[in-house]
């Protein structure tokens, strides 16, 4: 029996989803649904479910837009953030959530990611980061670790990888965070805060891909990959309590950048207001 959450927020007739057994994407999709559910039920906030718009690009991650029962738009490869920019800027009351992947948002769509971060337009970008091109069968992505094997790196990947959360931070994101599949509760809370954030927010969520990434790199089963996340991806409080030495090879799960920058649509509203004053309250047409 599907849970109430699935009944409420998933498009049941489009399930089961297409993801492989052991894929982490379903967990991230569920985290997003739980975060939205919490916000809709929270009396402190006045969110309308119909104001949520899910925007996705192309790749395994991006199929999530079709399963979530909200306004949804599944766009072209790499351009989800650019479509989302149009949606949010046109109608700032909409809560626009971009579901994307590591290739979608940091290779073909990398330019849109950094510029959206720089503008601080109020989008929430959730990157399903499985460190590989899964849908096309395991080619290396900008987050595939150096030396790993991929369908297009049969002798080992010579590229140096991006850390997407740090990339967004460097591009001036007012909210940048890292989550993972193993720490689902913590990640859900990060996503909830990202949606609440008034400005651009990015959550780089480490997924697991036993089929296209794990198998080529002898990472074992999905359970083994989750075990790796448990041991190497450490929630903020714990991470900060660790010695420099103990942190070696491990990464922090949590909010990495949080700044109060002016939000883009608010700033543009001021432009419109100033213009209207200048033209005596009405323009031509």
């Amino acid at each position: 029996m599907p849970s109430d959450l699935i009944h409420e927020y998933m498009r049941i007739d489009h399930l089961p989803q297409i993801w492989c057994a052991g894929c982490g994407n379903g967990v991230i999709m569920r985290d997003v649904a739980v975060a939205i559910d919490q916000l809709l039920k929270d009396e402190e906030y006045d969110f309308d479910r119909d104001d949520f718009v899910i925007v996705s690009g192309i790749g395994c991650s991006s199929r999530a837009a079709g399963y979530l029962d909200f306004n949804s738009i599944h766009t072209t490869h790499g351009r989800a953030i650019a479509f989302a920019t149009g949606i949010k800027f046109a109608n700032p009351k909409l809560k626009v959530i971009v579901l994307t992947g590591d290739g979608d948002c940091s290779a073909i769509g990398g330019n849109h990611l950094i510029h959206a971060a720089r503008r601080n337009l109020g989008l929430t970008v959730i990157c399903f980061n499985n460190h590989i091109y899964g849908m096309t069968g395991g080619q290396y992505s900008p987050t595939t670790p150096n030396g790993d094997v991929a369908a297009t790196a049969p002798y080992g990947n010579v590229d140096r990888p991006f850390d997407i959360a740090l990339l967004a931070t460097g591009a001036g994101a007012s909210f940048s965070a890292r989550g993972d599949v193993f720490h689902a509760r913590e990640t859900t809370e990060i996503i909830r805060k990202a949606i609440l954030h008034d400005g651009f927010s990015l959550v780089d969520v480490y997924s697991i891909c036993p089929t296209s990434y794990g198998r080529q790199n002898h990472k074992g089963s999905a359970v083994d990959m989750l075990q790796w996340q448990k041991e190497n991806l450490i929630p903020t409080a714990q991470f900060h309590a660790m010695s420099e030495q103990a942190r070696a090879g491990k990464k922090e799960i949590g909010i990495l950048a949080f700044n109060d920058y002016p939000e883009y649509t608010d700033e543009y509203a001021k432009v419109i207001e100033a213009c209207r004053k200048q033209t005596g309250g009405k323009g031509r047409n």
Partner: peptide, 16 residues
């Protein structure tokens, strides 16, 4: 930031 995103943005805004 470029024409790819310009075209995408006008489609998004039109959907809105």
């Amino acid at each position: 930031e470029d024409e790819l995103s310009s075209m995408a943005a006008i489609l998004g805004a039109s959907a809105a």
